[in-house]
Design a protein around this nucleic acid. Structure first.
Lengths: 342, 342
DNA sequence: TTGTAGGCGTTATCAC
DNA sequence: GTGATAACGCCTACAA
């Protein structure tokens, strides 16, 4: 065989394969999409041509003609946060099982960026989209509806929402933790949280703490709040800020395990014993919670299950085999040693 | 205004916008791609039409016609591994700065899966691709070359490779660590590593340890090796296995920080003091290394810088403003307390 | 500055 | 079973 570049430098197309195999483009297309609809002999001819040319179908052309991409998009706040990255991994694995590819984008918690990414995903023909949390311009939901792109919102749960949700009740989950904290005698409560601005998980959790305090007769104004970005060092810095305030808290409720671990490390560095001098709690229950010393009292979030369920609901929505529905992922309190009596 | 669905349920197209605005499709296209080439007045007309229809361009059609996607693909082994997730985040941020979208896939360390994903990415028209590590069927590199898709391989460095690399010398980095370990008197050396099968980072690091031992006159056959998947618990289980062997190692060199932290936790659980009874080292220097107790002696890998550099090289390759080139990312030994004298 | 028209690589509807 | 051929939605010379 002399060579296989009859067609100068172009990347081979369906037509090239058809020519080489001596069949029509229609047949090649059939060979690719439903091989059983083409007779054995031609199948071989076409197969060889495909191999010889190193042909790879042009997805964009296919999507254009077929009006379906077998693609689902997901936008998460950040991949830096282990729990999102891992939930996404589970989501992806489940999609893979159905031969669906995942398109990922991360918004860095910027809503405008997220809007743009949603449009990009839709432009790319995503058959469905996974989003984290409710909070966003209602116009986006309208846009998505108009474009006929089903959505699943994860990390939150609301039976009555107009979209499908797969997650837990952030308010209740955090309230349960706070109730426990208060039941152990704590009154001087502080929290280190992500900015609740445009972040409904964070604001709901904050609301949970406040409700718990109020329920116990503690004025919610007594709650000290420090905002921090995601990161161990950030958690430490936030703790320092907390300690600069007039009354030292007896417990610091953190928005996630990473912040909590950072707070613990900083406290110890400053000579405070945890939990004897100050208690600290986390949220998420990622692996780090177990190996932290003291081990972290936290809220367990089954992120892999959440990712998996989200994938299945979205797939159902896309195939229209399922109508809008939400699933509640149960969280649970995990008592370890970083939370002690007041 | 009565409504904006003159066109039944279809999602609006360029033609719809053109019709509504009373201009040609070419003008709308120009409005979208180079607004400065259309006069203010028509710009307004078209803009309104776009808004009113909630028009979103069809990316696939655009890619088909323009033969450029402004998209770059990346395949990483897994998002579960924080250092990949974070390197990828940096990669993405850098691409975003140039208006390029990122397509992500994770191969779960399965080479066949990776091959498939590479084809998918190419099919989707990725202008360039980021891969982790060298090791893969040469045919893939040929395929990529034939398809004219530039590649950057990260997490490894080889000036002489036929593709661009952005990373460090895994062999040298680990050898430096091992040299240090041995200089502290250790002779009974063990390692917990990811399976080196088809993983050149892991196998190179293993080679580094062996070379160091040989250099110090320690028969490399004395190296105890246990393979483990990524995870704290996996690291712990691996340590247990190591301790079941006849001679107890004085030091355990782990393939990454997560395994190391797991090993430390398990050792302590079994009543061993670290580093007095057994030393442990990590690799990567992610945040967890600092808060581990004892803090982890490890190899610092500037993953964000690596992601960023990889993005820039790939962008240069895609724009053909740059030819193949590799950049070395320097790693460094970080001495903390988990490594003590033998 | 704007419009006309051909083409990008596939799929899908028909006939044959 | 297989082959023409018209979409699919957009871009881009080329004209006007």
């Amino acid at each position: 065989m002399m060579s296989n570049d009859e067609n100068n430098g172009r990347t081979p197309t369906l037509a090239d394969v058809a020519r080489l195999a001596g069949v029509s483009t229609a047949t090649v297309s059939r060979y690719l999409n439903s091989p059983d609809r083409v007779i054995e002999e031609t199948r071989k001819k076409v197969g060889n041509a495909v191999l010889e040319l190193g042909y790879a179908p042009n997805f964009n052309a296919r999507a254009l003609a077929a009006k379906r991409t077998n693609t689902i998009g997901a936008i998460i706040p950040t991949m830096e946060n282990a729990i999102f990255a891992r939930g996404l991994q589970a989501f992806q694995e489940e999609l893979g099982r159905s031969g669906i590819t995942l398109l990922v984008a991360s918004s860095s918690y910027q809503t405008e960026l997220e809007e743009e990414q949603i449009r990009t995903l839709v432009s790319r023909g995503a058959d469905g989209i996974l989003l984290i949390g409710f909070h966003r311009d209602p116009k986006i939901y309208e846009f998505l509806k108009r474009q006929n792109v089903p959505v699943v919102v994860a990390w939150v749960f609301d039976q009555n929402a107009k979209v499908s949700t797969v997650g837990f009740d952030n308010y209740e989950a955090m309230k349960a933790l706070a109730d426990k904290v208060i039941s152990m005698g704590h009154r001087r409560i502080a929290t280190i949280t992500a900015s609740p601005e445009g972040n409904d998980r964070a604001s709901e959790r904050l609301r949970g703490i406040r409700a718990s305090m109020t329920g116990a007769g503690i004025p919610e104004t007594e709650l000290s709040i420090v905002e921090a970005e995601y990161g161990i060092d950030e958690g430490g810095a936030a703790l320092e800020e907390l300690l600069r305030q007039s009354v030292r808290p007896s417990v610091v409720i953190c928005g996630n395990d990473v912040l909590a671990v950072g707070a613990i490390a900083k406290a110890q560095e400053l000579g405070l014993r945890v939990p004897e001098d100050i208690s600290v709690t986390g949220f998420d229950d990622i692996e780090i919670a177990k190996i932290s010393s003291p081990a972290l009292t936290t809220v367990h979030v089954p992120h892999r299950r959440m990712g998996k369920e989200a994938a299945n609901i979205l797939i159902g929505l896309v195939n229209a085999t399922q109508t809008q529905s939400s699933v509640l992922i149960e969280t649970s309190l995990v008592m370890r040693t970083s939370l002690g009596k007041a």
